[in-house]
Amino acid sequence: MKVLVPVKRVIDYNVKVRVKADGSGVDLANVKMSMNPFDEIAVEEAIRLKEKGVADEVVVVSIGVKQAQDTLRTALAMGADRAILVVAAEDIHDDIEPLAVAKILKAVIDEEQPKLVIAGKQAIDNDMNATGQMLAALLGWGQATFASEVAIEGDTVTVTREVDGGLQTIAVGLPAIITADLRLNEPRYASLPNIMKAKKKPLDTKTAADLGVDVTPRLTVVSTAEPAGRSAGIKVGSVDELVAKLKEGGLV
């Protein structure tokens, strides 16, 4: 079985985000970029399926600027077999919307015919939490989002999902889309020898136009602003003082 994992290049989760003074967006120039953390989890899960003999090939796909090939190399170093880069933007500040990403992924999937797609639950830059669900819709496949446990048996995948009230388990027929939540696994680090080996693994490059997908955004970003600030209050010296403050404020 072939497993396809979409991986997004995003601002590293440790970087302090700076909003540009003119309100045109977030400054990404000379900022550390990494694989979206949820996608590392998705790649890890796919590799584990391969190690268990359930999957035989793991293909990773990234859509965006050409620099996204670094992200793909990271996935290859973790253990993915093959990578596809779909160049859809020139400027590192141009984010491709989930709908366009899903359309591009659908075009890739029509060619590649994987039986399972594992995406991340959410990209930590746009915080959309949408691509996996949109892709499932376009393909007419079943979806199991926010997965914390995945078990494949025959043509069915049983997935435990993190939901508002706790956990839900569902069964989805293959082919299917899974989106990975934080507790699905702990992704491995790529070792130095594997990073070297990854340089020789195949990486195909295409463009959105090759796949016939229009990536014009449906949502125009009118402005980007700093959130309303919150300033530090006071330090209290003791539990008694804290209790007094809370009572003063009518909070308890």
Binding site: V26, V221, P227
Partner: peptide, 17 residues
């Protein structure tokens, strides 16, 4: 309006859909 980047920025987006 919607928060992005873990709430470190707030985007105003206009939909053409």
């Amino acid at each position: 309006e919607r928060p992005v980047y873990a709430g470190n920025a707030v985007q105003t987006v206009k939909s053409s859909d």
